[in-house]
């Protein structure tokens, strides 16, 4: 088992406990190189905010110098940089290459591939709109995901526990569940009073299906002995559901939640593009209408951050709730 363990920092130039992190210093050189290219290589066409961008990248390089020199003495921060130094270097070099390919040589044609300066411009001048769109999207997603997760969980528990519920719900789930939630979109926008509530429904729908199926299979696969032991110890049926069946099924439930969250992203973006007049999906659409390519990339960038942030959050919650699984299974 130890042989397949990936040691933290393996292949990342993890340092013996010397004070200076050489890779981190190298990363700062990468960023300074990007700054040099930005400032001393003539742009093909006029670019805004060259100095400001140079300042930002220079600051990153400066921080990396400090971190590299402080190195392992910085405790947690030091360990963090030590582990990610190769990535920090790669991103710096990436920034330099991006600048060369777009602003300096035009190998990637404008305006389809915006320059880094143009991206900075978007964030500086359009951040209120982006921020508002992001918070709108997160809120919409949160509502839909919450209702969908709760509904799916209850359906799954009901199906796993009661024959009657299972009898009626299984065919429905089999028949309707696999339908992509987006197929409901035209109808939902008619039936619901507002496009917002329609989107909440669609997101909830797409989340509920995998959560229900996995909760159900989780409860169905609980070891029978757990129930018998609990019953001899005086457990009531409610206790058996809440304290035996549900905790035993939780690892499955979380798999369902992960699947539900991933599909709900797709539904969210489509719903925002087609009906809701706000959110990152709508912002993307709007930017496309104006052929504002830099804004589209910015929206994609923020959207990726949002999705991965939410997935990470769900991972954190799972790690909290399922501590007992550590050591039972390999994470």
């Amino acid at each position: 088992m130890a042989s397949i363990d990936i040691a933290p920092g393996a292949g990342t130039g993890a340092h013996p406990p010397g004070p200076i992190q050489r890779v981190t210093l190298l990363a700062s050189l990468g960023w300074f190189a990007a700054v040099a290219i930005l400032l001393f290589w003539q742009d093909l066409t006029f670019q805004p905010l060259v100095r400001e961008l140079a300042l930002v990248w220079g600051a990153v390089g400066g921080v990396l110098v400090v971190l590299g020199l402080g190195g392992n003495r910085l405790g947690r921060v030091g360990r963090w940089t030590a582990q990610r130094a190769p990535w920090l270097l790669a991103i710096g070099i990436g920034a330099a290459i991006w600048t060369v390919l777009t602003a300096k040589t035009g190998i990637l044609p404008q305006p389809f591939f915006p320059t880094p300066q143009a991206m900075l411009e978007v964030f500086i001048y359009d951040w209120p709109k982006i921020l508002h769109s992001t918070s709108f999207s997160v809120w919409l997603l949160a509502k839909g995901f919450f209702f969908g997760a709760v509904a799916g969980f209850l359906i799954g528990v009901g199906m796993g526990w009661s024959r009657a519920v299972s009898y009626w719900a299984t065919p429905l789930l089999r028949y309707v569940g696999p339908l992509p939630a987006t197929a409901w979109l035209p109808l939902a926008f008619f039936i619901f009073p507002s496009s917002g509530s329609a989107s909440v429904f669609l997101i909830a729908f797409s989340t509920a299906f995998p959560v229900a199926v996995l909760t159900w299979s989780g409860i169905a696969s609980v070891n029978r002995d757990y129930y018998e032991i609990a019953r001899t110890l005086g457990a009531s049926p409610l206790f058996l559901i809440l304290r035996v069946a549900v905790p035993a099924a939780l690892p499955h439930v979380f798999v369902g939640l992960f699947m539900g969250l991933s599909t709900s992203f797709a539904v969210l973006v489509v719903a925002e593009m087609l009906g809701v007049e706000a959110g990152l999906g709508w912002y993307l659409q709007w930017a496309q209408g104006w052929a504002a390519y830099a804004n589209m990339y910015a929206a994609l960038f923020v959207m990726a951050a949002m999705c991965s942030g939410l997935i990470t959050l769900l991972f954190r919650i799972r790690d909290r709730v399922l501590v007992w699984q550590k050591g039972v299974v390999r994470w």
Partner: peptide, 12 residues
């Protein structure tokens, strides 16, 4: 109370 051959503790 019945104690099973397998301890069957609740892992969570």
């Amino acid at each position: 109370i019945l104690v099973f051959q397998d301890p069957t503790l609740f892992p969570w």
